[in-house]
Deep mutational scan, measured.
Amino acid sequence: CHSECLGNCSQPDDPTKCVACRNFYLDGRCVETCPPPYYHFQDWRCVNFSFCQDLHHKCKNSRRQGCHQYVIHNNKCIPECPSGYTMNSSNLLCTPCLGPCPKVCHLLEGEKTIDSVTSAQELRGCTVINGSLIINIRGGNNLAAELEANLGLIEEISGYLKIRRSYALVSLSFFRKLRLIRGETLEIGNYSFYALDNQNLRQLWDWSKHNLTITQGKLFFHYNPKLCLSEIHKMEEVSGTKGRQERNDIALKTNGDQASCENELLKFSYIRTSFDKILLRWEPYWPPDFRDLLGFMLFYKEAPYQNVTEFDGQDACGSNSWTVVDIDPPLRSNDPKSQNHPGWLMRGLKPWTQYAIFVKTLVTFSDERRTYGAKSDIIYVQTDATNPSVPLDPISVSNSSSQIILKWKPPSDPNGNITHYLVFWERQAEDSELFELDYCLKGLKLPSRTWSPPFESEDSQKHNQSEYEDSAGECCSCPKTDSQILKELEESSFRKTFEDYLHNVVFVPRKT
């Protein structure tokens, strides 16, 4: 048989008469490798580009789960590009990614509803959504962080984005990388972005840091009482949809009607710091009717980097990364020049730590249904340095008659930039024990000054392991946590139920 035959053949030295091919099969003959313009397919066939392209389009058009959109890589027609490569849609070739590779997620039936953290986790790592997304989240724990972890990498949506009755959302900033909504599939009414009845939605994105392009379709905003109209108009300008909307697409009466839409800028007039305090004062603000001013709200939190936005980490279910302080308005003076500047002394802060701070007014709604208010920009203030805590785990070892090696770990709280350490030492008198000992005694162990690591005695271990207080009263049991108490109650309830079950099964009433 021919060298490319495997198993047997019907005619000697003829690659077209093989029972099976050793390498690849091409047009009725066995070959060692697939010549151009053919590609290896499933490690035994040679196919042309049209064959591989037909497989790709067949799966793409069917949208069946589990099928493969075949691509070409290293002269092979394979189910998908290997790690580190992405497909070129024009020629199906796998090309190296520039940075992290995109991950295209194809949605069944063309859309997916995100109504819980669990459903959001199914899209973790996706960068391109081939379909439409509907966000409908009523509640949950730590929602802002969970949504950002699972949806934060999405850069492109081919269909539309719909935010509907998501009472738990305060902001859409968890879509931190969303840059493009194509609108290839539109919501009824030709809408590519749809926001309806979101009672706590206050911000779409921080438009000073976020760009969003909507290729096709219109915007729809109705019944978002805490979303200011200025935020919607800003989205029109940034996304390129200005002029597409009709009169009733953006409701003037049901958007922002319960919001404090600040239209003035508060400026800080005085800032002073110490290692654990920050004193702030800002310019006074009074609405047209000074009785509408209820006070100020001061927001602050630790910020290692200057990239904080107002609604980071917030949701309507209680999660809030900001510390909020309510401040009463100052006494009002008739003389504008003698107006008191409101302020606040922030206490209990960490030394040498940068804080993000902003302040906003708290006002009631005027009778004319106009909203007044003022808010400052987010500023960054760093507390002063102070003395560091003591170095940890000092170790001293003498390696000769004239040297001592000293080692330690950095302090747990540096409280500033540590530039150097101060080492103090003092000579001590020799131990009298060394002169009084009889060095001729056998088995004498000389006193040693070398360091030995501390260890816990058996008594201390027994005390720590004991669940009861000892007789001397030195140790006591740790208080039980809520989960331990709940577990004990469940076990007790189970024992009672099981005992009742045994009584009912074992003891049967005697027939009379």
Score class of each variant (00 low, 15 high):
289 D>V: 06
330 P>K: 07
265 L>A: 05
210 H>P: 02
191 Y>F: 06
352 W>F: 12
269 S>M: 05
116 S>I: 07
188 I>M: 14
108 L>N: 14
354 Q>S: 03
360 K>R: 12
220 F>K: 11
272 R>F: 02
312 D>K: 05
383 T>P: 00
201 L>S: 01
127 T>Y: 05
312 D>I: 15
118 T>W: 13
246 E>L: 09
359 V>S: 02
213 T>N: 07
337 K>W: 14
278 I>A: 10
311 F>P: 13
261 C>I: 06
242 K>F: 10
168 A>P: 14
266 L>G: 02
321 S>R: 11
165 R>T: 09
121 Q>P: 06
199 Q>H: 12
354 Q>V: 08
224 N>L: 07
176 R>P: 06
257 D>Q: 02
173 S>T: 07
297 M>C: 14
275 F>N: 15
237 E>F: 15
307 N>F: 04
171 S>P: 00
405 I>M: 01
358 F>I: 11
259 A>W: 12
210 H>A: 08
354 Q>I: 14
323 T>F: 10
343 G>E: 02
194 Y>M: 12
389 S>Q: 08
334 N>H: 10
238 V>C: 02
280 L>G: 00
333 S>C: 09
106 H>E: 15
303 A>Y: 04
283 E>R: 14
213 T>P: 04
333 S>A: 06
329 P>R: 14
161 L>P: 02
383 T>M: 02
326 D>F: 15
134 I>P: 00
200 N>F: 08
398 S>F: 02
315 D>Y: 11
296 F>D: 09
398 S>L: 11
216 Q>N: 03
311 F>G: 08
289 D>G: 14
398 S>Y: 12
317 C>H: 15
299 F>T: 02
349 L>K: 01
377 D>Q: 03
325 V>P: 00
332 R>P: 08
311 F>Y: 14
139 G>P: 00
300 Y>T: 13
115 D>A: 05
399 N>L: 09
398 S>Q: 07
343 G>H: 10
155 E>N: 03
247 R>L: 12
271 I>D: 02
289 D>I: 02
136 N>V: 08
246 E>G: 15
399 N>F: 11
261 C>Q: 02
388 P>N: 01
381 V>M: 13
361 T>I: 11
189 G>R: 08
378 I>M: 03
173 S>I: 13
267 K>T: 09
309 T>M: 05
386 T>V: 14
212 L>V: 10
118 T>L: 05
292 D>F: 14
359 V>F: 02
262 E>N: 15
259 A>S: 08
205 W>H: 13
344 W>Q: 10
304 P>Q: 11
135 I>N: 00
171 S>W: 04
246 E>T: 05
363 V>P: 10
221 F>N: 01
156 E>Y: 04
242 K>L: 14
294 L>S: 11
379 I>L: 11
153 L>F: 11
142 N>D: 09
342 P>T: 07
362 L>T: 02
380 Y>F: 09
391 P>Y: 01
342 P>A: 12
322 W>G: 06
361 T>P: 03
200 N>P: 02
304 P>K: 04
328 D>R: 08
347 R>Y: 10
239 S>K: 09
389 S>H: 13
248 N>F: 13
233 H>T: 13
289 D>Q: 08
185 T>M: 03
213 T>G: 09
154 I>E: 00
245 Q>D: 03
120 A>T: 10
189 G>L: 13
325 V>T: 14
146 E>M: 08
130 N>A: 11
191 Y>W: 04
174 F>A: 09
330 P>S: 11
125 G>H: 12
219 L>I: 06
302 E>G: 14
334 N>K: 11
181 I>T: 01
162 K>G: 15
305 Y>W: 15
293 L>I: 08
153 L>D: 06
393 D>H: 12
267 K>E: 08
231 E>S: 04
394 P>M: 09
227 L>Q: 03
300 Y>V: 12
256 G>L: 06
162 K>S: 14
132 S>Y: 00
108 L>K: 04
181 I>A: 00
395 I>L: 15
296 F>N: 15
333 S>Q: 11
356 A>L: 02
371 T>A: 05
278 I>S: 01
239 S>C: 11
264 E>R: 08
254 T>G: 13
371 T>V: 08
216 Q>E: 07
103 K>F: 14
211 N>M: 12
177 K>M: 03
347 R>Q: 09
251 A>K: 08
346 M>L: 10
184 E>L: 09
183 G>A: 10
113 T>I: 05
406 L>S: 07
289 D>C: 14
251 A>I: 07
279 L>T: 01
387 N>Y: 02
340 N>W: 09
327 I>R: 02
338 S>F: 05
190 N>Y: 07
410 P>L: 06
133 L>M: 07
192 S>T: 01
371 T>I: 15
200 N>D: 03
112 K>P: 04
124 R>I: 15
274 S>D: 04
140 G>L: 10
390 V>T: 05
321 S>D: 04
171 S>E: 09
208 S>W: 07
108 L>S: 11
189 G>P: 08
136 N>S: 06
332 R>W: 11
386 T>R: 11
257 D>W: 09
306 Q>M: 09
128 V>E: 01
110 G>R: 07
172 L>D: 00
202 R>V: 10
173 S>V: 11
228 C>V: 05
382 Q>N: 12
333 S>G: 07
144 A>S: 15
370 R>L: 05
192 S>P: 07
274 S>I: 03
311 F>N: 10
335 D>T: 08
